[in-house]
Design a protein around this nucleic acid. Structure first.
Length: 661
DNA sequence: CTAGGGTTAG
């Protein structure tokens, strides 16, 4: 329904007879708005209001040239860009702006890092179905930069149109988003799904994947594999691939390989600023400032002026190399150039000062950062909190952590971990629990570091069961367990009277870590024997006999003969034999008397005696007498007597042989 | 339609 206002010419909708039909109306949602686009007024700048004063979607109609339609759209774009209230502004452009116009705005918000607006605008585009392929890839790209892979995935999953979902550039952007946000495994999964869906990966696909290798453990070998695959599929390394490779080498401290790729690439094309800055970063690993300075000179000679990243990386080289005077000077230079407006260079200097033990100097840089009102995402805080923790300045770290919590609402996982550690080290249980609750609310899933911090803390607070449960959680979430931590938990759980949990930690550790320290088996064996968990002890002993000392084995065997499951006694003895261990006659003696106490187990006893006979073991005289005295329980006195006498002969033969040798 | 990939911080 149209509700007319202002003037009232006949509602001859635009295009009718070329008459200017200037009136406003409130479109009902069912009316297609595409017919309302042509319009010469700089709409939206002054939105006419209805008599009620509500600023709703209002359009003026007018026949006009194409050129004015374009300028109208341009004006609308500008207005949305400048809007401080997208929710109110967007409905006014409904039907006027096309997907490509909205993409322009999306990029504008993205490039100015206004993530809230990016999301608001995109949500609106989705809701109103004014979007195209580019909208998706652009949005996903900004989710990559703003480190929001979850949102990117949500959006991707919401795509119903198959030709959009299975599209190389969409998939490539999602791949890059996952890879660069620490979800390398997911990106590899997506990669193989793409191939299954019939897409042919191109260089962009590979460089997106490579970008994830930088922060990945063992990233270099993964990168080499990917490049191999790229070349096998007939593609060639381009400048971007080389750039990624050099960056990966740099972050894996492979300075020489970085140089090699750099030189290799020079044959192909002239290095650009990305290649230079990545190679420079490779030099930062060793703080090789001489090479770094030479590289910057080379770069300048090819006509490339160092940018913010290059100079910041050079600062990193100096700071890593412990050249703090040069670092300070460069920071001043960066400030003068307007390159120190974010916290990065301060962070580099602070962190390295603190790690070099110059905590007070680090604190001064931090103060300077605050004085200069440098915008911080919290990294600077994180660095200082960690630095104070490291220096055991617990008061300072706590104070900073608290003020950090007040000043920053949005934390990422590293920040959470930093605060958590500060609270844990200071022993502030209240804050620890609050932090955990907050992490839960923010749906931040703990990483390896989080678990590690908590387990150590719970141990220290003697909350062993909590420590155990946390470790279990960590294991179930697929994190590799740290041996040292497990070992300490194993012994602490045992001391606190939780041997089963101790054993369970041992099993989790073995599951997650193939090459555990060899002495751990004996440690756990002794714990289990001490606690009387002999069946579990038997499993350990059987699997690791060659790694366990004679005295521990004997302690185990003695306990088992006395208290272990009677049905397993023969198995234990045989396991000793198979493991090449000597079996003392006391062990046999204990086994035999154990069986005699349980006449129902006479078959096991007979089995043992036969086994001893065939393996050259003698029944000692005490056992012999005991057996003869209780021979009635066997019902077959004769059989027993025969067996014992035969054995006696055998053993004499055996002894005779030994003497001859 | 121009799209999707690489550099610096904890």
């Amino acid at each position: 329904m149209l509700s007319l206002s202002i003037s009232s010419p006949p509602p001859a909708i635009a295009g009718g007879n070329g008459e200017p039909a200037a009136y406003d109306f409130h479109p009902s949602p069912s009316i297609s708005l595409s017919c309302c686009r042509r319009n010469g007024y700089p709409l939206l700048l002054a939105v006419p209001k209805t008599s009620e004063g509500t600023p709703t979607s209002s359009y003026s109609f007018r026949n006009s040239s194409r050129r004015s339609a374009i300028s109208e759209r341009k004006a609308a774009i500008e207005q949305v860009k400048e809007s401080t209230n997208l929710e109110a502004t967007l409905p006014r452009v409904e039907g006027l702006l096309r997907a490509e116009d909205l993409n322009v705005i999306l990029r504008y918000f993205g490039e100015s890092r206004r993530w809230i607006e990016v999301s608001q605008l995109f949500d609106w585009m989705q809701k109103n179905k004014v979007l195209n392929l580019t909208s998706y890839s652009t949005f996903i790209k900004y989710m990559r930069i703003s480190r929001n892979p979850v949102k990117a995935l949500q959006v991707y999953d919401s795509i119903t149109d198959k030709s959009t979902r299975v599209h190389l550039s969409i998939c490539n952007s999602l791949l890059g988003c996952m890879a660069q946000n620490g979800r390398f495994a997911s990106s590899v999964k997506l990669f193989s799904k793409m191939k299954d869906d019939g897409l042919s990966p191109d260089v962009v696909t590979y460089s997106a994947l490579l970008s994830g290798c930088c922060k990945e453990e063992d990233g270099y070998s993964k990168a080499v594999q990917l490049v191999q695959e790229l070349e096998n599929s007939g593609l060639q390394k381009d400048a971007v691939i080389y750039g990624s490779l050099i960056a990966i080498c740099a972050s894996n401290n492979l300075c020489e390989q970085a140089e090699e790729y750099f030189n290799q690439m020079k044959e192909l094309c002239a290095p650009n600023i990305f290649h230079y800055s990545s190679l420079l970063n490779a030099y930062s690993a060793n703080g090789d400032y001489a090479k770094a300075e030479k590289l910057v000179v080379d770069m300048k000679s090819t006509g490339i002026e160092p940018n913010k990243v290059v100079l910041t990386t050079l600062l990193k080289v100096y700071a890593r190399g412990g050249l703090f005077e040069k670092s300070h000077n460069l920071l001043t230079e960066l400030q003068a150039l307007g390159y120190a407006e974010d916290e990065m260079p301060y962070c580099l200097l602070m962190d390295n000062l603190a790690k070099a033990g110059k905590i007070e100097e680090a604190r001064e840089v931090f103060e300077k950062l605050k004085e200069n009102k440098v915008k911080s995402d919290g990294y600077a805080y994180s660095i200082m909190i960690s630095a104070f923790c490291r220096a055991r300045m617990l008061q300072e770290s706590m104070q900073l952590a608290k003020s950090c919590e007040v000043n920053y609402e949005k934390f990422d996982l590293v920040m959470q971990n930093t605060l958590l550690r500060a609270y844990c080290i200071a022993g502030d249980m209240d804050s620890v629990m609050k932090m955990l609750k907050k992490m839960d609310e923010l749906k931040l899933s703990p990483n390896w570091n989080t678990f590690h911090i908590l387990i150590k803390y719970f141990c220290r607070e003697k909350l062993f069961h909590l420590a155990y449960r946390t470790l279990e959680d960590m294991h179930n979430k697929g994190h590799k367990l740290n041996e040292e931590l497990c070992l300490s938990l194993i012994s602490q759980l045992a001391k606190a009277g939780f041997p089963s949990e101790s054993f369970s930690v041992y099993n989790m550790l073995r599951f997650s870590n193939r090459n555990v320290n060899k002495s751990i088996h004996e440690t756990v064996l002794n714990i289990l024997v001490g606690a009387g968990l002999l069946k579990d002890a038997y499993v350990i002993m059987k699997d690791n006999m060659e790694l366990i000392s004679k005295s521990s084995l004997n302690k185990f065997a003695t306990s088992f003969m006395k208290l272990g499951n009677i049905n397993l006694i023969n198995d234990v003895i045989k396991a000793f034999y198979r493991g090449g261990r000597t079996i003392d006659s006391e062990i046999f003696q204990m086994a035999i008397s154990r069986f005699i106490e349980k006449p129902k187990k006479k078959d096991l006893l007979l089995h043992l005696l036969k086994w001893m006979e065939s393996h050259g073991y003698v029944v000692d005289s005490t056992s012999r007498n005991l057996l003869l005295k209780n021979s009635h329980i066997f019902g077959q006195k004769k059989l027993l007597a025969e067996m014992l006498s035969k054995q006696h002969v055998n053993s004499r033969i055996l002894r005779g042989l030994q003497v001859e040798v």
